[in-house]
Amino acid sequence: MRLLQLIGRVVLTFLGTTGRLALFAGAGFSHCVRPPFYPRIIVRQMVDIGYYSLPVVGLTAIFAGMVMALQTYTGTSRFSAESAVANIVVLALTRELGPVLAGLMVAGRIGASLAAEIGTMRVTEQIDALTTLSTNPMKYLVAPRLIAGVVMFPVLVLIADIIGVFGGYVVAVYKLGFNASIYIQNTYNFVQAEDVISGLVKAAVFGVIVTLMGCYHGYHSKGGAQGVGTATTNAVVSACILILAFDYILTEMFFGT
């Protein structure tokens, strides 16, 4: 009986959370398209999420590209298919590594800061204060962050793709002795619009996941500093897991047969 109770409670909690999250997301998105809008806040969030994430995303991408070139060279050289290095690097980066690694890094950076900021506003009654000042907190706090996430993640991932390919190029040309122009030619010939676009669509979805998780956990945090800490952890962990899960689902949708 104990076991059944436990299973029941876990299932109910899961369904309850899913439902609350869906309602929260629905309310958040509906406020994205209904006035009034807060352009100043949207721009500020875009700078926060986009511009200030560039160093971390750039560093992640360049090392990912470099290590990809090194590893695929080791693999392909065993059956003298070294020329495939350029192809594999660009494919892996645009389809998978760019969006997923950038998503995970920004989940840590942005998910945590959103949850901490909104969570603190919740426990210090600032969210209640918004309501009393005829401002809808969903519209003022959540909607601008969702918009900024959806817009800036693809931009970040596009930059990550370029930097990552460059990282692969550097290793291939300067360490592995590839011909520079042939490497670029191979990359350029092989990559297709579909590869890049699928990566950018993934990025937009990850942008929603990260900002939504940050806002949701922050918004529902309670109980002072400890509650905010829990909210921050939950935001980052849930965002990371959802990114990996949705990565599979989206890949299946794009390329599955």
């Binding site: 506003m121 210090t124 009654e125 600032q126 209640d128 204060a129 918004l130 309501t131 009393t132 005829s134």
Partner: peptide, 16 residues
């Protein structure tokens, strides 16, 4: 209705 209302919160609740 809330437009007719002002509220002073216990912890001030200023937007930091």
């Amino acid at each position: 209705v809330n437009r007719k209302v002002g509220m002073l919160f216990q912890g001030a609740a200023l937007f930091d």
